[in-house]
Computed example of a mutant assay.
Amino acid sequence: MQQQKSYQIPGLLKIGLQNGNYPIYILILNQIQNMKEVCLKMNQYLQTINAFNSYTWVICNQQTLKLEIKEVKQMLNSFCKNIPLQQFQRIEKLIIVSDAIQQQQAIDAIPSAWSKILTNKIHLVLKLNELMIHKIELTQNQIDFLSRINNTYQEEIPFYGRDISEYPISQTGVPEFLDAILQYYERHDDYLRKQGVFRISGSIQQEQSLVQQFQIRNYSVIDEYDPDVVSTVFKNVLCQLKKPIFPFEMYDILKETEINISKEKLLEMFQVFFAYMPEVNRKTTKRIAELLFHVADYESENLMGLHNLSIVFAPCFLRSEQADLSDFQGAKIVVHHFNLLVQNVEYFLQEIKPNRNSISQKLSL
């Protein structure tokens, strides 16, 4: 089946089959913003050149959300009021994708004006991939699309590899996914005592599954995942940011800064960089530094003191734009300096006074 690029109306997909022009209209109820607009578009579709062909409706929610009978009933009533009866005499199948609806409930939800037309044409399936029973074969990519689709049908942006400001931001000023992860650790403080916390990778399949949930902003499922999976997503999203949380220039300067530099001078360097960083970067740094400091409190149990945590997380915050041999040689120095940052993050963020002189002048040592 080929999926046509006709996503103008949130909640309505028009899909054609490879074996002909047999139309299929998929209605994603939780995505519908304006039912009248959807009815108008549907009317236009039904009055096209294939006006005498039969067609199929598929009614569903995104795969992760249950579809309730009241939602189906509301939609059918709206369509009954806005689309001529003769258009529905051509319908071949009305397929509802839900594991929360019974056949009789679906039949009872049909408006009385359509009952003779639709009663024998209504079908229930539990999952999207069961549509093939009705000769509607969705590819896995199309099923994934229906699971993750957003309200405006914009081309999907991969979860990994964005700029930090491109993620939905919560009221706390940090990305929503980060808030969800931090709250996860607050609820499960025992995970932070686990030996090797943040060093063990989780299942790749589970990681992909959690990323898909984050992609559709479904953060409530996070408790269903193993802590190693959560930490894998946590680290990977930071390491793969389009631009690291700290500017590329900061890594280049830190790797050339001697390891025995005075604490005062190093703190001054960090303070200058914080002054120039976007607010979301500063708040993200503070929240994660607080978490790491808390994890280090359990060093006797998890064997992850600030030094070991800095080895794991320094690359998540600091990296070169173009890696070369000197980056590997300077990695230990950067880890040392990042360790100091974590220990003193509150100092940097209490009062930031940007100095508009060039950073290079300010940081000359």
Results as ranks from 00 to 15, higher is better:
A106H: 03
Q103V: 08
Q87W: 05
Q86I: 11
Q87I: 02
I91F: 02
I101M: 06
S112V: 13
D108V: 06
Q104G: 03
D108A: 15
N77K: 12
S98A: 12
Q74E: 15
S112C: 08
Q89C: 08
F79D: 00
A113K: 12
M75C: 12
Q86Y: 13
E92I: 07
Q89N: 12
N77Y: 08
Q74Y: 09
R90F: 03
D99K: 14
V97P: 05
Q86F: 10
I107N: 07
I96A: 05
A109C: 09
F88V: 01
M75V: 09
F79E: 03
I96S: 02
L76A: 01
R90Q: 05
S78T: 14
I95L: 04
F79A: 12
I101G: 09
F79G: 05
P111W: 07
L76G: 00
Q86V: 13
I83K: 00
Q105N: 10
Q102L: 08
N82E: 15
Q74T: 08
A109E: 04
A113D: 12
I110F: 08
E92W: 02
L76H: 00
I101P: 09
S112P: 01
K93E: 14
I110R: 00
K93N: 15
Q74P: 02
I83N: 00
I110A: 05
D108F: 04
K81F: 05
S112G: 02
K81W: 01
K93Q: 15
D108C: 06
I110M: 07
A113G: 05
Q86T: 09
A106R: 00
I96G: 03
S98L: 06
Q105Y: 05
A100D: 10
S112K: 15
Q103E: 12
M75K: 09
A106K: 01
L85D: 01
Q105E: 15
A109V: 09
S112Q: 13
I101H: 04
I91L: 15
K81M: 06
Q87F: 10
Q87R: 05
I95K: 04
Q74V: 07
P84G: 02
L85G: 00
K93T: 02
R90C: 03
A109T: 13
F79Q: 08
C80N: 14
I96T: 07
N77C: 07
Q102F: 06
I101T: 12
D99C: 10
P84H: 05
D108E: 15
L85H: 08
M75P: 04
I96K: 01
A109G: 05
S112A: 10
P84Q: 03
Q102K: 15
A106T: 07
V97S: 09
A106V: 06
I95P: 01
A109S: 15
F79W: 15
Q87P: 00
I91S: 04
Q103C: 04
R90K: 13
L94C: 12
Q105W: 04
